[in-house]
């Protein structure tokens, strides 16, 4: 464990807590893409298949349970909670996220470190996570301005993978033979997708005005 990875995990944890807090306290999911939340639930379900077979550490197992629990409960809130579901804008959240799942699955069948069930699904989860934010960013552009909590959620979600990139650089230089191109490239692409959001988020914060992405 290194400071970059710990910072990344804490930032990731903060992002899901901000979203859960928003949905649970104000009972609203306005501006939040259910498609992105469903993709993240799939990401965690396919990445943590080893949660009961490979014990790494209490921290690792605890965090996996938190991410699995939070992502599935957010999906449940947005789909089934009688009050929250009313604030879900399904007419705007129209990104065909199944067009993301199939290509990621096919790509994972081709590009992976070992062609086994678990390894292919693990690789699939990395590719899917890289693009999972797209429905949310599209929804953001459609609904124009967004509330602060949703903006903070997206910012933290993007920042966590940026911390992971520093973690991979650190591990590359400190651990011999630590080379994993697949998460590195997927993680870099994921962080780049947040590029313009970070740009507008920073400027709205600097000029202290409402966050608005260009149409």
């Amino acid at each position: 464990m290194n400071i970059f990875r710990f910072a990344g995990d804490m930032t990731h944890l903060a992002s899901v807590l901000v979203l859960l807090l928003k949905i649970h306290t104000i009972k609203s999911c306005a501006g939040v893409s259910l498609k992105t939340q469903e993709l993240y639930a799939i990401v965690f379900a396919t990445r943590y298949l080893d949660i009961f077979t490979d014990f790494i550490s209490l921290y690792n197992t605890f965090m996996k349970l938190v991410f699995l629990g939070s992502s599935f409960s957010i999906v449940w809130y947005m789909r089934s909670h009688k009050i929250v579901r009313r604030s879900y804008d399904k007419d705007q959240d129209t990104f065909r996220h199944y067009f993301l799942i199939v290509p990621c699955l096919l790509l994972a069948m081709i590009i992976n470190e070992k062609f086994t069930f678990r390894e292919v699904l693990w690789t699939f989860s990395l590719f899917l996570e890289a693009v999972a934010i797209l429905p949310q960013l599209v929804l953001l552009q459609r609904t124009r301005n967004i509330d602060n909590l949703t903006g903070q959620y997206i910012f933290l979600l993007g920042a966590y993978r940026a911390f992971y990139i520093f973690n991979w650089i650190y591990r590359y230089f400190t651990e011999p033979h630590y080379v994993h191109w697949i998460p590195w490239i997927a993680g870099l692409l994921q962080t780049l997708l947040y590029g313009d959001f970070f740009y507008y988020y920073f400027h709205s914060w600097k000029n202290n005005k409402k966050l608005q992405l260009p149409a």
Binding site: R5, I56, E113
Partner: peptide, 10 residues
């Protein structure tokens, strides 16, 4: 890299 190595990252 040892492909079978444990996935210690989240």
């Amino acid at each position: 890299a040892a492909a079978g190595e444990l996935k210690d990252e989240l």
